[in-house]
Amino acid sequence: MKIKIKSSKNFTLFIIMMMIFILLSIVMPSKFLTGINLQSMASQFPEFGLLALAMMMAMITGGIDLSIISISNFTGVIAALILSGSMDSSTPAGVAILFAVVAVVAVSMVCGLLNGLLIAMIGVPPILATLGTQGLFLGLAIVITKGHSVSGFPEVFMGLGSGTVIGIPVPFMIFALIAFLVSVLLKRTRQGFNMFMVGANPVVSKFSGVNNTKVLINTYMLTAVLAGLASLIMISRVNSMRPGYGTAYLLQAILVAVLGGTDPDGGFGSVKGLVMGIVILQITQSGLNIMSFSPFFKKFIWGFALLAIMVINFLLHKYNEKKRIQSMTDMKKAAKAG
């Protein structure tokens, strides 16, 4: 029954997405449905799309990760320093980029490990643990840069954030690849399966032989690595890194995760739903841009959308529950009659 409800949730999302798309295409075909606009949309969302994937994974295990933006800031600063440093020395760009990527992955893994240890080993509620590390990681980024921004990267590196291959933006391809990998992780690996189960009920999963500690530590390391990768796209696209960049993404990541059907209490969520959530957010944003609404109005819209979605989910849940009881009654009646 729940499966049906859930798939119908994804179906509703699909309808909403198509409706917004068609609406915008009809209202302003000359502006919305252009190659340039589609291309720019496809290069805008990947950095926050990766953050939303990370948020979804934390939520599936029944947690939340408030530190992803700070991790992005921290790793972004490190990558930026390595890359801009290479400009002064005679290090070849390729080596510097490799160095930067390795550093980002390594540092983000350590950040995630810290979150994971706090949550899984010590038992700190995820919201508190990541609230603390959020300040810690952002603080590190500020301390390293003394609050200044870092800029000036090798030419080749800029391709990561703003290049295209046969017309398709590189960041989009990176996002597509990672979304696919996360989907495989969630649906086809033991880690993924266990993430849902730990989120559904950690006591039962423990009694079922799942190593909760390991599953949670892995989860927070994965979310951190995704945040790290997002930072690479971020600094490449903006061509600089300033600590504090992208704080608005936190709300958007949570919004998209909830919009995409992830249960904040854990146990449910899918990449499919999340991607639709991202698309809805991005095309709405693009539509609002074209209609030249201010960024403040967008802020209002995101808050409103998040609340509206939750209220709708609440009402849908109530309705389905009613239907479920009704159908159970009918079944029992039929059984009695038969």
Partner: peptide, 19 residues
Amino acid sequence: HQGLFEAQAIGDNIVITVL
């Protein structure tokens, strides 16, 4: 509280021990 993931599918509840 210890035996079943109540909101999850029957199949998933069974296979968790034998992944």
